[in-house]
Nucleic acid binder design. Structure first.
Length: 544
RNA sequence: UGGGGAUUGGCCAAGCGGUUAAGGCACUCGGCUCUGACCCGAGAAUUCGUCGGUUCGAUCCCGACAUCCCCUGCCA
């Protein structure tokens, strides 16, 4: 595991040293109302890594306290995503399993005179809450007798009331400068059936009340969440301090992950999915876990990125470059390489008279276990149009008239002539090859200025290649603009590519690297059509 | 004068009173190379938002100011 220092680790070390906690127990608590994205990967990685580092363990807990938004299918998909990432929770828990426990704790609050049933309308309640600079006013129901509250709360549970007609509230401080403490709602009425508990319940706990109790039940030592919950921590502590729990979990906040040009946030993704602007949650342009999987990213690359990116309380935006770097670093060791030509121009080797010759090609120089293969070489080849210039510019190191270049895994060829159409477009480049320069022969007499890639014309397979770029046009997402205006139409580009045949020695691949043009991976769903997803562009540093 | 956070090179981020102020990404230059990628070297903060204070000594402590983020859901 990579070690990256962060302030939460330091807190844990101190807590362990000072015997504030016996051990480390963490949890990842997604609400099953959508799929996970790379921002969640940060939370997942932090929780699992830290627990593991200190010999503790981590729960996967579905925070399913709102039946109106949650769905069983997300429970399943989220677990698959986490498993794919390589994390193993000690146990899968559901907040809905603790509903009875939470109810009991709410009764404790009522009995202590710290909670009351209020039938103030949502509108009036908002008005009574005051503003950021003015205190709120107390509800007329605030001092309702305990017995009456107990009776009303029981009837709320029994389903006697309409949604929105009544809530259970904590009696804290309507003048608190922290809005969260102005008598927050503890339970609300919801008649919608819950995907797990069905219609057993008609009241559901609010996040602020439920979460600390969930953490208590699981004996979470460090409850990690994002920065926007800092204002909720006093309430978290209030509930813990007043519900007679014998274990006190504590909340710590860290900054969420933001990446330039990426849309994160379930709300936005849900909107993109619902508006049909993308394929779905697993659209490769999205940085959802399933989208990244389809794009060809591997878990290790993603996790390394997260680990190197750090944990702090700084509202930061990481450059997409950083993600690309770690994905590329991971893929370069694992991706079999093939050769492909995106914009082909024909090369005729005028002195070739051997038919088709199969030449060995290293599949992956860094990882020999991926095996070698053979590829055809013949009289007619295709090379990349941009790899040829009739008159070379300075610093141009590829093929040009009168000059020699190495064909990777093949021979040196020298361009002698070009055939053009009436408009001057190059149709063919006539070259001669030198038999002595065959790849692997150990020929060292001279070195060409450059090496280029190619495919043999008669065997090349034509394929459609999809390049998936970044979803957004602008560097940063602007919440005030409609999403459809911000999506970059170039985020999906379709190319026709000529790819070397998969014939000899080829195995079912799931990832490829295209020389110079980038790393691509096959989307397993589209293997038959040979549709590729670009993983990461490999920039060329050549500039005329 | 509501409250809560944050402020270290273009982007992340270590650092916890005495350091030449880690590291990664990006960028530049050089080397290597069966692609210019990869790999290997080298390069940037006289300085840690600003101004004061404490101290023999401050990025690290205190104060003021500035800027950014969060908080008025019966969402999480």
């Amino acid at each position: 595991m990579k070690e990256s220092s962060n302030f939460i680790r330091n807190i844990m070390i101190d807590d362990l040293d000072n015997k504030v906690v016996d051990g480390i127990v963490t949890r990842f608590p997604p609400e099953p109302n959508g799929l996970l994205h790379i921002g969640h990967v940060k939370a997942i990685t932090i929780n699992f890594d830290l627990a593991k580092e200190f010999g503790g363990y981590t729960y996967l807990r579905f925070d399913d306290t709102n039946p109106e938004k949650e769905d069983e299918r997300f429970v399943k998909l989220i677990q698959e995503d986490i498993k794919w990432l390589g994390f193993e929770p000690v146990e899968v828990r559901y907040a809905s399993d603790y509903f009875e426990e939470m109810y009991e704790r709410a009764v404790i609050l009522i009995k202590k005179g710290l909670a009351y049933v209020d039938d103030t309308s949502p509108e009036d309640m908002r008005a009574q809450r005051g503003t950021l600079t003015e205190p709120g006013t107390e509800s007329p129901r605030r001092n309702r007798p305990i017995e009456e509250n107990l009776d009303l709360f029981e009837r709320m549970r029994a389903g006697e009331f309409e949604e929105g007609s009544v809530v259970l509230r904590a009696k804290i401080d309507m003048a608190s400068p922290n809005m969260n403490l102005r008598d927050p709602v503890i339970y609300r009425i919801v008649h919608e059936p819950h995907y797990r508990t069905g219609d057993k319940w008609h009241i559901y706990p609010m996040y602020d009340f439920a979460h600390p109790l969930e953490d208590y039940v699981e004996r979470i030592s460090h409850s990690l969440c994002s920065l926007e919950f800092e204002n909720n921590r006093p309430l978290y502590d209030w509930y813990i301090d007043n519900t007679d729990v014998e274990f006190k979990p504590r909340q710590f906040e860290f900054a969420k992950l933001n990446i330039t040009g990426a849309i994160l946030g379930k709300r936005n993704i849900i909107k993109l999915v619902e508006d049909g602007l993308i394929d779905g949650w697993d659209d490769p342009r999205l940085l959802t876990i399933s989208g990244m999987r389809r794009r060809g990213y591997r878990p290790e690359g993603i996790k390394n990125f997260i680990r190197e990116t750090g944990v702090s309380k700084e509202n930061s935006i990481v450059e997409f470059h950083m993600l690309e770097h770690f994905i590329r670093e991971d893929l370069k060791l694992a991706a079999p390489r093939i050769m492909a030509v995106l914009d082909p121009v024909k090369v005729v080797i005028t002195n070739w008279d051997k038919g088709v010759e199969w030449v060995p090609a290293e599949n992956n120089i860094e990882n020999p276990e991926l095996g070698d293969r053979e590829m055809p070489f013949g009289r007619e080849l295709y090379i990349e149009r941009e790899d040829f210039m009739e008159v070379p510019e300075k610093r141009f190191r590829r093929l040009s008239l009168g000059n020699e270049v190495r064909l990777k895994y093949g021979y040196f060829i020298k361009a002698n002539d070009v055939v053009k159409d009436e408009e001057g477009n190059i149709l063919e480049i006539h070259c001669t090859y030198d038999p002595a320069t065959k790849s692997g022969s150990g020929f060292e007499e001279r070195k060409p200025k450059g090496t280029i890639h190619w495919v043999e014309a008669s065997h090349a397979v034509e394929a459609k290649v999809l390049r998936y770029g970044q979803l957004l046009k602008e560097e940063n997402y602007d919440a005030d603009l409609p999403l459809e205006e911000q999506i970059d139409p170039q985020s999906v580009q379709e190319f026709r590519a000529l790819i070397e045949p998969f014939a000899k020695g080829s195995k079912p691949f799931d990832r490829y690297q295209f020389y110079r043009h980038g790393y691509f991976s096959v989307d397993p769903k589209h293997t038959e059509e040979l549709t590729f997803n670009e993983v990461v562009p490999m920039k060329s540093s050549y500039r005329p």
